[in-house]
C-alpha cells in the first residue's frame, strides 16, 4: 500500500476491466491511503459493487461480502453462538459422554459462528469487506457499523474484546434509497458514480462485449444515453443492461441498431412496460435508431 500511486491504481483498474475516469481512482486511492472505508453511492448498475470486487483482485485479497437487507442484525452480520452445537454438547455431557467441561468452554471460539463482519477482521489474510446496499439496513445497525469501522474491534460479552488481525479494505455501497446517517458518512471517503458518458460506455462495451464491435457499441451507447436523458423513465438502464443489449443485438445478428432491431430488443434494456411505452412515445424508435447512428 505504501508504494501505491494514483497512476498505478488507475492502470490496475483498467487491467481488471474496470473502465472509469481518473477522478474515481483518485477517490479510491485516498480511501486506501487514509485507511478509511469507501462509501460509494449511485444509481443501480453503475459499477459500485464492482469496485469492491476489483479491489480484491488487485490486492489479491479475499472478498467478504455482507449483503444488507431490511432486518439485518448483529447476529447475522457479526456473530452468533452455535446453540445447536452447544445443546448437543450439554446433552452429551449429561449422558456421561465426552470430557468434563466448564461453562466457559461452551462459549469458546469452537462454538462461535463468525458472520461476515467478524470474519473480515479476524482473518489473517488481506480482506476486502464489501458491505453492499447499506441503505437497506436500519439506523441502529448503521450506528453499530460505524463503531465497528472506527475501531475495528468487537466486544463479545462471553469472550471479551476481539481486535482486528488486519484492517480490511472496506467498501460500502448505497443506492440512495434513503440517506445514510451523518455519523457513518463522516467516517468514510465518499464517491458518487454517475451514469457513464457515451465515450466511457463505448469503452466499457468494448471490454465487456467485444463481439459487438466498435460501431454497434457506439450505437448502443448513444441510444442508451438518449433513453437515460428522458426524465419520464422510472428505471434508467444500467451499464449491465447496455451490455446485455449489445450482446442481444449480436445474438440476433444485427450489425447496426436499426428501427427493427430496436423494436425487437428494447425490452432487454427497459424492464417494464411503462418505461418502454414512455420511450416509444417520447423518444420514438425511429429517433432512437437515427440518434444512435448519428455520426
Amino acid at each position: 500500500m505504501r508504494d501505491l500511486t494514483v497512476d498505478g491504481l488507475y492502470r490496475s483498474f483498467e487491467e481488471q476491466g474496470y473502465i472509469c475516469e481518473k477522478n474515481l481512482v483518485v477517490t479510491v486511492f485516498l480511501a486506501l491511503k487514509l485507511g478509511k472505508p469507501l462509501l460509494v453511492e449511485g444509481a443501480p448498475g453503475v459499477g459500485k459493487t464492482e469496485i469492491g470486487k476489483v479491489l480484491s483482485r488487485i490486492f489479491n485479497a479475499q472478498l467478504i461480502r455482507l449483503q444488507c437487507y431490511e432486518g439485518l442484525d448483529e447476529n447475522k452480520a457479526l456473530y452468533e453462538w452455535n446453540y445447536q452445537k452447544q445443546l448437543l454438547r450439554i446433552q452429551l455431557q449429561k449422558e456421561g459422554i465426552g470430557t468434563e467441561m466448564a461453562e466457559r468452554d461452551l462459549f469458546s471460539a469452537e462454538y462461535l459462528l463468525e458472520r461476515p463482519l467478524l470474519k473480515a477482521i479476524r482473518t489473517e489474510e488481506p480482506v476486502v469487506l464489501l458491505i453492499d446496499e447499506v441503505d437497506k439496513v436500519e439506523e441502529e445497525f448503521e450506528a453499530f457499523l460505524f463503531e465497528l469501522l472506527s475501531d475495528f474491534q468487537v466486544s463479545i460479552p462471553e469472550l471479551g474484546t476481539l481486535t482486528a488481525r488486519q484492517i480490511p479494505l472496506v467498501v460500502l455501497t448505497s443506492n440512495r434509497e434513503r440517506d445514510i446517517s451523518d455519523g457513518l458518512k463522516r467516517r468514510c471517503v465518499y464517491l458518487f458514480i454517475d451514469y457513464p458518458s457515451i465515450e466511457k460506455e463505448v469503452r466499457i462495451l468494448q471490454v465487456k462485449a467485444p463481439e459487438a464491435g466498435e460501431r454497434l457499441s457506439r450505437e448502443v451507447a448513444r441510444a442508451v444515453s438518449l433513453i437515460r436523458a428522458n426524465d419520464g423513465i422510472g428505471k434508467k438502464p444500467a451499464i449491465s443492461e447496455s451490455i446485455d443489449w449489445a450482446r442481444a443485438l449480436v445474438a440476433l445478428g444485427a450489425a447496426s441498431l436499426t428501427q427493427e432491431a430496436v423494436k425487437q430488443t428494447l425490452s432487454i434494456v427497459l424492464k417494464n412496460k411503462e418505461d418502454i411505452d414512455t420511450v416509444v412515445r417520447e423518444v420514438g424508435v425511429k429517433a432512437l435508431a437515427a440518434g444512435a447512428q448519428k455520426a
Binding site: V6, V26, C188
Partner: peptide, 27 residues
C-alpha cells in the same frame, strides 16, 4: 488535510477530488 497530503497538490483536479471525497458526503 490528510487527503491533500496524499495527492499531487500541483494537480488542481486531484485537489478538487481530494476535498470533495472528504468534505462532501451528499449527492
Amino acid at each position: 488535510l490528510d487527503a491533500l497530503s496524499q495527492v499531487d497538490i500541483l494537480d488542481r483536479e486531484q485537489v478538487k477530488v481530494a476535498l470533495s471525497a472528504t468534505l462532501v458526503k451528499n449527492f
